[in-house]
Design a binder for these strands. Structure first.
Lengths: 192, 192
DNA sequence: CGCACATGAGACATGAATGTCTCATTGAAT
DNA sequence: ATTCAATGAGACATTCATGTCTCATGTGCG
């Protein structure tokens, strides 16, 4: 039964291709299908056999990014402990997906039109709910809206991913930089 | 002497074209030259007469963005008062350039190769120097590097510009959102 | 060994964006 | 009114990424 093996190999390769594409497109968002194929170590023909076209590839990356984010949200256990700790865990869990997120964040074509993936709305809602929980518990200041804090989290993740990729900051500081800057702003300061 | 008037008109139109292009490309970074021309209310032929090609247009936008940033840095008087106040003034002065900055921030092709505009390095140095001044004076925490704070400022500006453009946050909160979040993170908290 | 199938290489057509060109028109200055 | 320059409209060739195709190769399996 080569059929089973066939499916297995396809799945593995598809995963590898998506990873390679994400890594390349994060650095050069205008990379051609040929460059994507070369980066994955396959031919352009095979790339087209796995993804109907560039659009399908980007959509698959979008689904992968959403899935990774949701997995990170689950792993971060946003409902446990203080909101501050939950945010810190979330940043930690999102670190591996930061590069992919940074790419998707700039693909604004994904968000025009009605066919936009509802996964983003789910993610936004869960993250915003976390910030709202922190506000309700008195941990976070209330003059910064959950929507803005969610946007800022995305933006800081993307900024850090690019800064690390270009060597302007150290990769090991990723979590500390984002969590400290974001929480320092979102956390209500003790009255002196 | 129509020659003088000729030069004057060219300058005015060029400015207008650049503004229109910046506004459009901020929303849709893949807009074609035809769309850019239509957005500026001119024909594609005239657009090509003013800018040799798409590359030249992007380069001109880059120069414009750098010039606006340097003007904002000058107007913010980064050496006066506390570093915190200077950062707040800087965010205020940069607000009008935020859309353009957001576009340039994602044009990572500008930063590959050796021919990258040295204006960015100058800007980075000036902004980083401001954060360093705040650290030296004890206003800002020292565990977040000036390089990262500079990156974070860019990232938050871009995030806020997009969020405002898409209606997720209110435009009037622009300065407050960025300055408060950034400073809250960069500012050393009072010991309880 | 022979079969099946995924792959790589490459040819080919298509479409889109670009860059260049000509020509008629407008508009302002003289 | 005449002249000059800029503009708009459009034709045109070119380039490039894309998408589809065929064919040869190799590799695993029966």
């Amino acid at each position: 039964m080569s059929h089973v093996r066939y499916l297995c190999l396809m799945a593995v390769d598809r995963e590898h291709v998506l990873r390679s594409a994400a890594a390349l497109l994060t650095r050069k968002s205008t990379a051609t299908m040929d460059e994507v194929a070369k980066a994955a170590g396959i031919s352009r023909a095979t790339l087209h056999r796995q993804f109907a076209g560039r659009d399908a590839l980007v959509r698959a990356l979008e689904s992968l990014g959403i899935a990774e984010c949701e997995a990170a949200l689950d792993a971060a256990r946003l409902d446990e402990g203080t909101a501050q700790e939950a945010v810190s865990r979330l940043v930690k869990e999102l670190e591996t997906a930061a590069g992919l997120l940074a790419f998707l964040y700039t693909e604004n074509q994904l968000f025009e039109g009605d066919g936009q993936n509802e996964g983003w709305a789910r993610l936004d809602a869960r993250i915003a709910a976390l910030f709202r929980r922190g506000q309700d518990s008195g941990e976070f200041r209330i003059d910064l809206t959950p929507a803005w804090l969610t946007e800022a989290l995305y933006g800081l993740m993307a900024s850090a991913a690019w800064a690390v990729a270009e060597g302007r900051v150290a990769a090991k500081d990723f979590h500390h930089m984002i969590a400290e800057l974001l929480l320092g702003g979102a956390l209500r300061r003790e009255e002196p």
